[in-house]
């Protein structure tokens, strides 16, 4: 398969060359025929004119074609190059800015996080403090209330004792008909009540 492929290609190429060459020969045959009669003379003026014309054309085209167009091509190439370079610069700038923005964003995010954390911490602390204070206050309040209750109770008990003593004395007077000094009684009753009261209360 491959062998046939290149053979065909070689044949094609050789065929092309042969065809072109033979075409050339066919086209040139009248010339060769006319040349057989003798070498045509070189006409110096024709050669001179042709060279002058060609050089003149070269000069004209230098002025009107090659110089301006080649310059324009160079110019355009430079413009494209410089704008590419410019674009590259801009790209680098944008990249840098993007990175900066990213950095900034990250920084501020971190900062915000820190702030929140700090606030949270403060809050926690305040909360703990408040709770502690409240607990303390409550404890104080309770202690005071207990103390008040204690004192009120004591007072009531004392009053009750006094009254009970007085009543007892009165009752005893009635029973005994004889008055003993009130102080003696009171002392006696108090001792008694104290004894009983402690057991009662």
């Amino acid at each position: 398969m491959i062998k046939r492929g290149w053979l065909a290609r070689v044949r094609q190429t050789v065929g092309g060359v042969v065809a072109l060459s033979s075409l050339q020969l066919i086209l040139a045959s009248p010339v060769l025929a006319s040349e057989a009669h003798g070498v045509p003379a070189i006409e110096a003026y024709k050669v001179m004119w042709a060279i002058i014309n060609f050089l003149f054309l070269l000069a004209i085209l230098y002025k009107f074609a090659y110089n301006p167009i080649l310059k324009m091509l160079d110019d355009r190439k430079n413009t494209i190059e410089s704008s590419l370079r410019h674009a590259e610069e801009i790209r680098v700038d944008i990249e840098r800015m993007k990175q900066e923005a990213q950095q900034n964003l990250m920084d501020s995010r971190k900062e915000a996080q820190e702030i929140v954390a700090r606030a949270q911490q403060i809050g926690e602390e305040t909360k703990a403090e408040l709770i502690a204070k409240a607990k303390e206050e409550a404890a104080n309040e309770r202690a005071r209330a207990v103390a008040e209750i204690e004192s009120a109770k004591e007072k009531a008990v004392n009053e009750l004792r006094d009254q009970a003593a007085t009543l007892a004395i009165l009752a005893a007077e009635k029973v005994l008909g004889k008055a003993i000094t009130i102080e003696d009684h009171q002392k006696m009753v108090k001792d008694f009540v104290n004894e009983v009261g402690d057991r009662l209360c």
């Binding site: 024709k46 050669v47 042709a50 060609f54």
Partner: peptide, 10 residues
């Protein structure tokens, strides 16, 4: 052929 000759000379 004087012209083509002139070009070839150039």
């Amino acid at each position: 052929w004087n012209v083509t000759g002139a070009l070839a000379i150039v």
